[in-house]
Nucleic acid binder design. Sequence first.
DNA 1: TGCATTAATGAACAGTGTTCACTATTCTTG
DNA 2: CAAGAATAGTGAACACTGTTCATTAATGCA
Lengths: 200, 200
Amino acid sequence: MARRSDHSREEIQHMAVAAAITILNEQGVTGLSARKVAKSIGYTVGTLYLVFKNLDELLLYVNAATLDELHQAITEEAKIHTDPTLSLKSMALAYLHYAQQNSARWSLLFSHQLPDGQLLPDWFEQKIITVFDGVMKPLQQIQPDVNEQAVLQATRELWSGVHGACDLGLSNKLNMGAEFEIEALIESFVENYLFGFAKV
Amino acid sequence: MARRSDHSREEIQHMAVAAAITILNEQGVTGLSARKVAKSIGYTVGTLYLVFKNLDELLLYVNAATLDELHQAITEEAKIHTDPTLSLKSMALAYLHYAQQNSARWSLLFSHQLPDGQLLPDWFEQKIITVFDGVMKPLQQIQPDVNEQAVLQATRELWSGVHGACDLGLSNKLNMGAEFEIEALIESFVENYLFGFAKV
DNA sequence: TGCATTAATGAACAGTGTTCACTATTCTTG
DNA sequence: CAAGAATAGTGAACACTGTTCATTAATGCA
C-alpha cells in the first residue's frame, strides 16, 4: 500500500497534529491515542512512527500550536487598550478564557513533560519567550526607567500568578465559594501586583 | 488464600497508600501502577479493587497525605517569624522546596483529576481550606480592618501566584536564564503582591 | 519489462486499569 | 466436633495503551 496517497512527511505531520487537536477537543486528554490519530487521518499506527519519533514529539507539535493560539489570543487583547494596566488585565482575562474554552489543550500544554528530563527544543523555548514578550511591553510602559532584567523577571512573576490562578481555578482547587468568581480574582490580582511593581 | 494475613480493610488501605508514595518517590508518576502497588504490599491487584473503588480513589488518598505534609511544611515556617511579610515569604519558599523535593507527589496533587468531572469529596476540600487558612493568618495581620471576604480572596490571589511560579519553574516553562533563580523570583513576587495588598 | 527502492502495513510485545468466576480459609450453626 | 455458609483473596481475561519491525505492495528507474 505504499505511496497510495500523495502525502509528504510534512503533510502527514500536519494532518496528525490537526487530528490530535480535534480528538483533544472532543474527547479530552485521556481520549487521545496514537491509533485514534492514525485512523482519523486514514493511516495506521506504523506510519505515525515513520513521521514522529514517538507520541511525545507529536504532542510537542500540538503544544506548539496551542502556544501560538494562546499568544494570539493574548496579544489581540493587548492592542485594544492604550493604558498598560488595562492591557495587562484584559490579557490575563484572555488567558483565562482561552484556558476555559480549550481546557484539554491548555492542560496538555502545561502537564506534558518530555521523558528522561529531555529539554524543550530551542524553537519551542522561543515560542515561550514570544508569549512573555507580549506581557513585557505594557510592563515596560509602567516602569520605563527600570533595567530590562528586572522587567523580565516581573513579567514572569506576574504571569506565574495569572497562570496559577487559571490552573487552580479550572481544576477547582481554589475552594472558592460561589460568592466570588475567578474573573474578579484575576483582575484584583493583576491590580495588586502592578501596584507593587510600580512602587519603586 | 482468604484471611491469610490479618489485615483489616483500613490497614491494607494504609499500606497501599504508603507503597504508592514510595513508588512515586523512586520511579515517578509514570512508574506507578496498580500491579506494582499490590505486589509491594504482598497482595494481588484484585485485593486493591476490594479496598479502593479504583486507582483514582487510591491517588486521592495519596494526594490527601501530600496535602497534609505540604500544610505542615508551610506552617512550620510560619511559626519562626513574627513579621507577617517575612512569614509569608518563607512559607512561599517552603512550598517551593517541598515541590522540589517531592516533585512526583507534588505534580500528582495538581495534575490528578477525578473522572467524569466528579467533585472532590468534602473532607478533601476541607484540607485545601486548612492550607489556605495558614496563609490567611499573616494576611489578616497585615490588613486587620479589611473584611474577611477580601482577605479570603487575597489569600487565593497570593497563593495562586506562588503555586504558578513553582509549577512553571519546576517544569522549565519560565524560560529563566541562569542569571536569576526561582527563589529570588518568588520572594520578589510575594513582596510586590503584598505591597499592593497593603495599599488600601 | 524487471528490479531496486521505499511507503505503508498490521501483527506482536509488554505494559496499563478493571472485572469477576473461582478457590481456600475462616466463622457460625446444628 | 462436623457441615455449611460467608467471605478474603486470587489471577486469568478483556480491552485498551505506546512502540517495533518483518512483510507487503506500489512506485521510479534502468
